[in-house]
Amino acid sequence: MSSFTLYQPRDSGLHRLHPLTKLTLTLCGVATAVVLPGFWPNYLLFALFLLPLAAWGQIVCPLLRAVWPIWWPFVLSLFLVQGLFWPGGTPIVTLGPLSFKQEGVLFATAMAGRILVLIGSFLLLSLATRPDALMNALTARGLSHKLAYIILAAIQIVPRFQAKAETITAAQQSRGLETQGNLLRRARALLPLLGPLILSSLMDVEERAIALEARGFGRRTLRTSLILLSEQPWEKGVRALLLLATAVLILARTVLALR
């Protein structure tokens, strides 16, 4: 498997699940995160639903390592923006003209939990599912192979960008660019790092499009796959139950909101 995916191969029950079952789990997790009210339920959802699933897939550490660098910038900005700029509210900490509002902090706590589950759900899917197997499962259910490719490319873009960014950073440091240090120095280093990343990515797009066409991507013929997907007899039932439970949750939440 290419290093440009997050997929972590393991011999686990989670990995053996049909890709559509894992996709259903993810989408239900996302929907639940959005509709769950209150400040703490999403943290419980992460701890009691996503982490046990990750443990079943033997990928707790990779999941936490992948979640953290994406989650903390959101958390930081949420707490700063909501805490400092919440209209009105009760100040809990005052620093000169700025004060943290209790309501803003509570809202940020709730939103951070929601984002934690959103990120965690998608990363769990990415870590436990081969992207090509997922696309194969979706195209077998009638999804256009072009759309499948777009989804696959989107899944792969983060690790691909990470690998490219590491190489670019190394190349620019080798030309004397200091990327560590104070905020100003780091800000100055952004353009030499982002410039080649964007330019080379645009060039990659052109090369990739040519390479795909050269391999018959645009042909309208019946496609077969080398990947054989297996499905446990009970998986369809689990998917139906998950969808039903999520639908009930959304309905209940809507009814409660309308009251």
């Binding site: 190349a171 080798s174 030499p192 410039g195 080379s200």
Partner: peptide, 23 residues
């Protein structure tokens, strides 16, 4: 020493020029 400091003594030309050109 950092890599940027080492760049005073060692210049490394990477294989792919597109990993560095941006001006």
């Amino acid at each position: 020493y950092t890599v940027a400091q080492m760049a005073r003594r060692v210049g490394l030309v990477f294989q792919n020029p597109d990993d560095q050109l941006f001006k």
